[in-house]
């Protein structure tokens, strides 16, 4: 790309007849670029660059949010790492993120494959729109419906009625005394996990695969499942990588359910996740130093996971290329 650009430039200059001053195009460096960048740079410095540095410094102090107090070095880290709730929260967030990710993406891939395989293209397009429209329901409202209607602890909640058909006893769901049940509910609440932009991105990726290749595999008598695993998935590595990276970064930090529904107290970490632990330590207990230490630990964890993911998926990809 870059080489081409340079070539074009040279050719264009040569085309200009002698004596005609070419309208100023680009100097070697355009310092006015900084004017275009200024709003972004100022905002990012203020709200996205300085805060992590502040958080890092604060994590070594006993700050309460108002004053920096004194340096305590690694005491906050020690306290965080010695706390059972912290480790419980890490375990919880791992289980929730991985389970939700797998369920969401298997469901969305399946749905995208269904829409892709439909012969009636107009009907397929209609379904596609109908599956995106529910995006208009805000996450907050979805959570409230989950909390008060579908998975409420009452016997008349939708989930209890449905499991009643199969002869199961009503469950307390989010408010169950068994911690495993609470985690299970947090994962299962998204059922059936499909629709929206994720499905759209997969469907678009499928539609981008050359039809000749698909036809060829069909003629060779390759079954649908094999076709998906060996021909569709390798063509979607870019999309899957995007989902894995954004999914991990988003999932590991998410605490909407904890904030709005389960509100785990710090002495009972049954549904605690690191994000909510940070929120509680900072805004309920005014322990900004400790909160930031947990934040740094979470950041290191996410960075490590992203790095591993990157390698793992790239390796797989290069194998496919071979």
């Amino acid at each position: 790309m870059n080489k081409n650009k340079k070539k074009d430039k040279v050719d264009l200059d040569a085309l200009i007849p002698e004596g005609v001053t070419r309208i100023k195009i680009h100097h070697k460096s355009d310092l006015k670029a900084y004017i275009w960048l200024a709003p972004a740079l100022i905002l990012l410095l203020t709200f996205n660059f300085i805060p992590p540095i502040m958080s890092l410094i604060t994590s070594f102090t006993s700050s309460n949010g108002v004053t920096m107090e004194r340096f305590v070095w690694f005491a906050n880290y020690g306290e965080a790492l010695a706390d059972g709730v912290f480790w419980q929260s890490i375990l919880n967030v791992f289980i929730i993120t991985i389970a939700t990710f797998i369920l969401t993406h298997v469901a969305n891939l399946f749905l995208a494959e269904l829409l892709y395989s439909m012969k009636a293209k107009r009907l397929s397009a209609f379904y596609r729109v109908m599956l995106i429209i529910p995006m208009v329901v805000p996450i907050i409202v979805t959570l409230m419906i989950t909390q008060y209607i579908t998975y409420s602890a009452s016997e008349n909640s939708l989930a209890n009625i449905v499991i009643g058909w199969f002869g199961a006893k009503p469950s307390m769901w989010f408010w169950d005394s068994n911690p495993a049940m609470v985690i299970f509910t947090i994962i299962i609440r998204g059922f059936p996990w499909a629709g929206g932009t994720t499905m759209l991105i997969y469907l678009a990726a499928l539609q981008g695969i050359s039809t000749e290749m698909i036809e060829a595999t069909k003629l060779d008598g390759v079954g649908s499942f094999k076709r998906i695993v060996h021909f569709h998935l390798p063509m979607m590595v870019g999309q899957i990588k995007y989902f894995v990276i954004t999914g991990i970064i988003g999932g590991m930090q998410d605490y909407n359910v904890q904030l709005l529904i389960t509100q785990p107290a710090s002495d009972n970490g049954s549904s605690m996740v690191p994000g909510y632990l940070i929120y509680r330590q900072a805004f309920t207990n005014s322990r900004y130093g400790l909160a930031n230490a947990i934040g740094i630990l979470l950041f290191i964890l996410i960075l490590g996971l992203t790095f591993i993911n990157n390698r793992f998926i790239q390796n797989k990809n290069s194998e496919e290329v071979k």
């Binding site: 203020t46 709200f47 996205n48 300085i50 805060p51 992590p52 502040m54 958080s55 604060t58 949010g65 970064i249 590991m252 930090q253 605490y255 690191p274 994000g275 940070i278 929120y279 900072a282 900004y288 909160a291 930031n292 934040g295 740094i296 979470l298 950041f299 996410i302």
Partner: peptide
């Protein structure tokens, strides 16, 4: 960088 890490410092700013 996770948003949760910057949450408290962003709030202070």
């Amino acid at each position: 960088i996770p948003g949760t890490l910057t949450l408290t410092s962003q709030y202070i700013i």
